[in-house]
Design a protein around this nucleic acid. Structure first.
Lengths: 230, 230
DNA sequence: CGACGGCTTGATCCGAGTCAATCCTGGTGG
DNA sequence: CCACCAGGATTGACTCGGATCAAGCCGTCG
């Protein structure tokens, strides 16, 4: 539970109230709510932000760093549902419990607001209600696209789709900086780490990409990747 | 586009305005809206209700029958995103375009309302806004559970999960009536029709289920299925 | 009764998983 | 400044689960 974690004063987190307004892409009612009512918290790499099954009392927004959300099977198999980069809202659930575990992939800062406060606001301010629906609808769209990937695409197609997705989210279109490990990518794409690695070298051999260092990928032949995408 | 279809007077559809109130499980603002403003339409087996990419001007609710929603890859590989049974709302998109194709699996009747009408209502009536969010959030939950299935479960686990899911949606807990074909199940579970068939036979051999006729499945050993589920 | 569509079963294949070494490389301490 | 170390990444050899290809079977409907 979150307050417990904060109360416990764990060394890997620090809380700071009333942060400077978050510089977001578009200003929205929800962004304003985060700016006005949010408390920012720092999480070290691999620190848990919330666990599956915990009460979903808070909603989060990434200020810096990257967050992964995932589900586990009883024997430890992991499926990452999404990566959350700067500006992304995560942890918003209509239900009372979180349905994923959230962890910081790198040292990260997130802003937190009480879900009950947002819901109360939404009852009066339709812009907030619309934003909450919009966030959930956006999550749904990404999940649905990912269903097609996991259900019907082969390894090469999965990796190509992933690279294009990451390229679309970063600022530089042709250079993809990966904040996450090969294991994280594998658990997102429903593959193993070895297959991800092999597929990346294969794409490099085919001159579709270049990998100067393992966490940086240059898209050399976007049309080849696009062909694999659909 | 829908009005075209209705206007075309296709033999496989008929429209009837102001239907008797839909008997739903719980009464909600959204259910009331469907009852008051809905037009019911009949679709024959395999008729398309809307196509991926079409304008999402309408929201649908199943009165009778079953509907599948799916995405296609360019080479025809299909991923079914969900099956919609009596009482389910489908086709509600925050975006302006449908992201799936919807088809009737069996002869079906659905009620339709204009999305713009619901959105306008939602701006004034917070109960409607909450219901719209709730429908999308419910879709998201199902999609997220399905991600785990498609990304990390083996064939037996997928089929067991599917049977338990269908059992939970029907009225009779131990007898599952399947409105969809093996091919539909395969495309929902990210398998082939042969693997679905083999896995069902295998579960029958293990005395977990019984298949008196192909579209009816008796759950004989629920704990065995539950063990495969997580 | 026959034919067709949906389903099952069998034989074989192949893409991704598994198991097992290396190979970086970025960080640490001497 | 350099040698070492540990964790992440790559590569190779082999396995295996599910896909593919190919018959049949069954039940429903004309």
């Amino acid at each position: 539970m979150l307050m417990q974690k904060i109360g416990a004063g764990a060394a890997d987190k620090s809380i700071r109230l009333a942060p400077q307004p978050v510089p977001g892409p578009a200003s929205s009612a929800l962004a304003d709510a985060f700016a006005l009512m949010g408390a920012s918290i720092r999480f070290d790499r691999n620190a848990e932000i919330y666990g599956e099954g915990e009460a979903s009392d808070y909603v989060y927004k990434v200020v810096s760093g990257t967050v992964r959300t995932y589900k586990l099977l009883s024997d430890g198999r992991r499926q990452i549902g999404g990566f959350h980069l700067k500006g992304d809202v995560f942890g918003l659930e209509a239900a009372t419990e979180h349905r994923f575990t959230a962890e910081a992939i790198a040292n990260s800062v997130v802003v937190v607001v009480k879900k009950s406060a947002l819901v109360a606001l939404a009852a009066r301010d339709h812009d907030i209600a619309r934003d909450l629906w919009g966030v959930t609808a956006g999550d749904l769209e990404r999940a649905q696209d990912h269903l097609l990937l996991l259900g019907r695409k082969n390894a090469q197609e999965r990796v190509a789709t992933f690279l294009l997705e990451m390229a679309g989210r970063g600022s530089t279109e042709a250079v993809v900086e990966l904040p996450m490990s090969r294991q994280d990518i594998a658990d997102y794409l429903g593959l193993t780490i070895e297959t991800v690695s092999r597929t990346l070298t294969q794409l490099e051999d085919e001159a579709a990409i270049e990998i100067p260092v393992s966490r940086r990928i240059l898209l050399r032949n976007r049309s080849a990747l696009n062909r694999l995408n659909a």
